[in-house]
Design a protein around this nucleic acid. Structure first.
Length: 519
RNA sequence: CGGAGUGUGGCUCAGUCUGGUAGAGCACCGCGUUCGGGACGCGGGGGUCGCAGGUUCAAAUCCUGCCACUCCGACCA
């Protein structure tokens, strides 16, 4: 898929989707690659988005009765060995600490052989094991359950290939971990987290998703059930934007998380875990971005209203600035989307036109141009980033100052809604439900071998019934799909009452599953 | 780790075949004119050409080795 991108005036021409993505991240001042392999530097604007995500989601996590805490970055190697599937799933991407001191040899620093750790430490790829260890001490009685905790942390997974925000060796996330007396309660908690993610994604990120259960081959290592929310990017590929796992009693058994029930019997706890990461920011970029750069939903925009003063080194500049400062103050005293408005007067010593386009590229929801004429008329001229798309002709609106201040909350809410509606329309119209055979699927997506990754045409997803095979039968399906660069995304929670034949085997269908290309 | 490609100023690239004083556009700095939809003129700063060897009077350019990055594959929030 190709896009034009005016954020890159330098090359100023057609870009492939991956190049477009990189350009938007760079021109939007979100992040840059760091000197550390596969790790990124999040710049203030990008980290500001993460802070907004954190603050907003943290409230929702707490509303679920979950408390925050913090566990160590390092996990003893032996903790992983306790859960066989889990260690197998992560073994290939673990960063390992083996020494605790450096020594200069021939002027070169290297690990001191005398300072080798008795037991290597793993830089956490996820914290089930060390949190489970704590749970085994914290949980003695059914009265200790349910236990629900969350932590905001960084984790490391030594990925072979990385992309800013979407897949980095180190990333920021939240991981929720819960323990329950029985399956029913744990599963309910798993699904509650999933629903929180769905709602968060749609209402805060304005990113529509399909919530569903992952097929067996896509499960989290060690999990009984894995659920996900899947978002559709503008190239039609799926992005797994959050996952929630019902872990059964396997982690409890591996780590001896047991409690005494009211009958006095010792029972294993049922646990769950769920997480979302900085990947969501990549999803926002690829959901809302356009040829002029980012478009941030007001709920997560670090600055929602940016006022660019038109200054000309003349006496009236002072009036413009004074008007602008008063405007910012009035706006910031109001609430939009449940929080104080975040407005700023951009007084950076830079040409106005330059400033304005920088904010367009950064995706600021409302950009106000404030000049002497506005001051004289007591009005505010502004443009909405959701109106200004793909190098469209400029759409500028004007309101009286008081009306603008009064309507600012509604304007921001409206932009939030518009971004969601646009993305929702895109998602809904690009899930094909009329393809019923594997041959049809191959024909629709086209022979993968012929396509270069960068030029894959936009195809979206296919939703079709299947018989939910397991084991080797499932593996056969997965391999067939893989040859077409296709994957099973999830089986949406929202299912019809009856099903046609399985798209893969022709056997009786038992549920519908989403199929598509994925990140 | 397999396949392909690329390393030249902050960004995008030319120059390498055919060795001879390191370039362009954008960005950046200064001055002036501008400024309400991506300004213009003049002047300027910034690069040991990925690293290490070798060949040569002379290496961005040729040879050898290494490293990094990008894309594809395997892996993946």
């Amino acid at each position: 898929m190709q896009r034009a991108l005016s954020v890159s005036r330098v090359t100023g021409n057609r870009l492939t989707f991956p190049d477009w993505y990189q350009a938007v991240v760079r021109e939007g001042d979100m992040a840059e690659v760091s000197p550390v392999r596969g790790s990124m530097i999040m710049k203030p604007w990008g980290y500001g988005v993460w802070e907004r995500i954190q603050q907003t989601m943290d409230r929702r996590i707490k509303e679920m009765g979950v408390e925050n805490c913090y566990f160590p970055l390092f996990i003893p190697l032996s903790f992983f060995a306790k859960e066989a599937e889990h260690v197998e799933g992560f073994a290939k991407e673990m960063a390992v600490v083996t020494h605790h001191r450096l020594k200069a040899v021939d002027g070169k620093l290297q690990p001191d052989p005398d300072a080798k750790l008795e037991e290597p430490l793993i830089v956490r790829p996820t914290s089930e094991t060390i949190i489970g260890d704590a749970f085994s001490r914290w949980i003695k009685s059914h009265r200790d359950l349910p236990l629900k905790i969350n932590q905001w942390a960084n984790v490391v997974r030594w990925e072979m290939r990385t992309r800013l925000f979407l897949r980095t060796s180190e990333f920021l996330w939240q991981e929720g971990h819960t323990a329950h007396a029985d399956r029913e309660d744990a599963l309910a908690s798993t699904l509650e987290a999933l629903e929180m993610y769905r709602d968060f994604s749609e209402t805060v990120l304005a990113m529509p998703v399909v919530a569903g259960e992952k097929p067996e081959n896509e499960r989290f290592p060690g999990a009984d059930n894995t659920y996900s929310i899947e978002a559709m990017m503008q190239d039609g590929k799926a992005l797994q934007a959050g996952t929630s796992h019902y872990l059964g009693t396997s982690f409890a058994r591996a780590q001896n998380i047991r409690f005494q029930g009211d009958s006095g019997e010792l029972e294993y706890a049922h646990t769950s875990s769920w997480g979302t990461s900085t990947r969501m920011i990549g999803g926002v970029i690829m959901t809302h971005g356009d040829d002029d750069g980012l478009r941030l939903p007001p709920a997560i925009a670090p600055r929602q209203i940016v006022i660019v003063p038109m200054l000309r080194d003349k006496p009236e500049d002072a009036e413009v600035l004074a008007f602008g400062e008063a405007l910012v103050k009035a706006l910031n005293g109001q609430f939009a989307l449940g929080e104080p408005i975040r407005a700023i007067l951009d007084t950076k010593a830079q040409r106005s036109a330059e400033k304005r386009w920088n904010w367009v590229r950064k995706g600021a929801p409302i950009i106000v141009e404030l000049g002497p004429r506005d001051v004289a008329a007591g009005q505010v001229s502004f443009m909405r980033r959701d109106d200004l798309r793909d190098g469209d002709k400029v759409k500028s609106q004007a309101l009286s100052r008081d009306d603008f201040v009064a309507q600012a909350p509604a304007l921001l809410a409206s932009i939030q809604q518009t971004l969601f509606d646009q993305a929702k329309a895109m998602l809904d119209t690009n899930i094909r439900r009329d393809i019923t055979t594997f041959e049809g699927l191959v024909e629709y997506f086209g022979a993968a071998a012929e396509d270069d990754e960068d030029t894959l045409a936009f195809k979206g997803w296919v939703r079709a019934p299947w018989s939910r095979p397991t084991g080797e039968a499932l593996e056969a399906v997965v391999q067939k799909l893989k040859a077409q660069k296709l994957t099973l995304r999830n089986a949406p929670l929202d299912q019809p009452n009856s099903f046609g034949p399985c798209i893969f085997t022709g056997a009786a269908g038992v549920e519908e599953v989403l199929i598509g290309r994925a990140y």
